[in-house]
């Protein structure tokens, strides 16, 4: 009983004073949110400035966007499963889920780069019109974040290799990346709704 109490107390302590590292990272995410807010505002202003160039309706391939969305959504829960394994100290399972998430993220990035290079090859790069400049800046910034998330994930997989127990520091890193990864999925919801779907209507 006393033993349970200490566990509970320790855990309650852990919960009520969430690690300052995680809270600090949360604040960083909020500032990142402002960056994306700014880029969405720019896109909202520029979305009809085609300068005689192609419109979103002519450029965007909704089935491709649908697949990208599905990949990112699945990668969100695979990372969640990884976090559950981490909390249960099942490090092998955790690394497996992180690897799955990593591959999904890589797939997303591959599709995005392919879409971008197609557009640029057809002369519809960011220099074509204000609409395309703001489109590439907004979606490219999201892609850059995904790239950073993948690098971070690879580093954490390497750092956790050979460990049998996760240190508190390692757990904080995994929690921060989990916030980052889920945050990117939230930004993507706004991207596919307000950029892709609204341009096609």
């Amino acid at each position: 009983m006393a033993h349970d109490m200490t566990v509970d107390a320790a855990h309650a302590h852990d919960e009520h004073h969430e690690s300052p590292v995680v809270f600090g990272f949360w604040l960083y995410l909020m500032t990142d949110c402002l960056i994306f807010g700014t880029l969405f505002a720019v896109f909202a202003v520029m979305r009809n400035q085609f300068a005689g160039g192609p419109t979103g309706k002519e450029l965007f391939d909704l089935s491709g966007v649908g697949i990208e969305t599905a990949i990112l959504l699945v990668s969100s829960i695979t990372y969640g499963f990884g976090m559950i394994s981490a909390h249960q100290n099942k490090l092998g399972t955790m690394r497996m889920w992180l690897a799955v998430t990593f591959l999904l993220g890589l797939g997303f990035l591959f599709m995005e780069i392919r879409e971008f290079s197609h557009m640029v090859a057809e002369g519809n790069g960011p220099d074509r019109s204000a609409f395309l400049s703001s489109f590439f800046t907004l979606v490219g910034t999201h892609g850059l974040h995904v790239t950073c998330g993948l690098l971070w994930m690879a580093v954490l997989m390497v750092q956790s290799t050979g460990k049998t127990v996760l240190s508190e520091r390692m757990m904080n890193k995994l929690t921060c990346l989990s916030l980052f990864w889920h945050f990117l999925d939230i930004v993507w919801i706004c991207v596919f709704t307000f950029v892709y779907l609204m341009s096609v209507i």
Binding site: V7, D8, H11, E15, M83, I84, H87
Partner: peptide, 12 residues
Amino acid sequence: AHTAHSGESHGS
């Protein structure tokens, strides 16, 4: 107990 708690606070 720990697992159950983790389930609550970190998602299951």
